[in-house]
Design a protein around this nucleic acid. Structure first.
Lengths: 204, 204
DNA sequence: CGATATTGCTTGATCGTGCAATTTAGAATG
DNA sequence: CATTCTAAATTGCACGATCAAGCAATATCG
């Protein structure tokens, strides 16, 4: 897809446009998010979008990539200090439901990406990457506490529940808070481990 | 919002347009679903949409209502033969993941509705209704097996997991099958009941 | 001064919507 | 039963707005 002329694009502008995209998603939805609106939100000319991102598609991809980057960074941070498998699972939960991550606006953006991914190859690629990364992290940790098959099943269940809380958080009347989601999810994980015959390494 | 002149609108046409909408969602996404495209899919003039639904918004609302109706019908069917609380929970799972309901196309449509609901009051109303109905069904059954607070928490968890499987199913590379989702979810429910100190009425 | 960043406008296509005209179907009439 | 009539059903088009995109001109800054 190629940057032809772009040499050293000021990251500031790019970021402003990406943030404007997410703001537009939050307040007006995907269908009403036009290049013109995003550019106006970022106080930038519409033509700029094509300079930086090559078009609307590129802008959406960059926005999704941005969200993935933030989530990944939070995961790496928290995983760094994790000692055992259960710690790694807790770190996963805390990253996915950190107060700065599990936001109404961000959850709405993810929902839009999930909805559009099946119809945009590049978004689909990113979604697949993100999903496989999550699945792999979960399975790797669970595997040390139970047989592989059980680990895979529980990873599937946990991943689905995470997505579900995200989807619910996007709704205006949602009552799911970050703290509540963390609490429920950690309990769910522990139940899953115990039921699989695993032992909880320590009470935390 | 009033049918002024419409007396007995042929349900056949309405249904054709609704199904065309869902087909368009499945194959092209929300952003690319225009009135013209839907009308063409249904082999009907575009102006027809305004006769039957009063506009694009009305069409989307009717499509969402249609999906809710199908889900509700499946639930009622299965709940009718449920004997105890665990039976009711299993019926809930089987309705939400019936082979005819847990379809890639239908899950994609739900995903689009969830994504757009925050920006369309009428869709938001329907989404809220549907969510509260599900929550209420789950809590009512769980309440007979554990204290109210625990029942509410578990209902929240189950509802989120259901939504999560739906979101995953919408992706092109998803491997979640109806049977697998039913299996995993029933196990998750039983784990939740046992952990809350409840007893499983019978093995099934 | 020269290259890069940024703008503002144009273009052609497509959108949702409203409306006048036409077709259709069923009740009323002979 | 055949014919007429009328209102509902349906069409096709035209309208104004808005879209993504491309490009030539201008501004900015090292």
């Amino acid at each position: 897809m190629a940057d032809k002329v772009r040499r050293k694009a000021p990251e500031k502008r790019r970021l402003r446009l990406i943030e404007a995209t997410l703001t537009a998603f939050d307040s007006h939805g995907l269908a009403a998010t036009s290049v013109a609106r995003v550019a106006a939100l970022a106080r930038v000319s519409a033509g700029n979008v094509h300079h930086y991102f090559g078009g609307k598609d590129g802008l959406l991809e960059a926005a999704m990539l941005h969200l993935m980057g933030e989530l990944h960074a939070a995961s790496l941070d928290l995983l760094a200090s994790a000692k055992g498998p259960l710690d790694r699972l807790d770190a996963f939960v805390e990253a996915n439901f950190a107060d700065a991550i599990f936001t109404r606006a961000i959850c709405r953006a993810w929902l839009h990406f999930w909805a559009e991914a099946p119809h945009a190859p590049e978004l689909a690629r990113l979604e697949r990457l993100n999903r496989q990364r999550n699945r792999s992290n979960l399975t790797a940790a669970l595997r040390q506490l139970m047989p592989l098959e059980a680990a895979r099943d529980l990873a599937e269940e946990i991943a689905a529940t995470v997505d579900g809380y995200w989807a619910q958080r996007a709704q205006a009347t949602s009552t799911v808070t970050p703290a509540k989601a963390r609490l429920l999810l950690k309990a769910q994980i522990r139940r899953g481990i115990l039921a699989a015959g695993g032992t909880l390494p320590s009470t935390r």
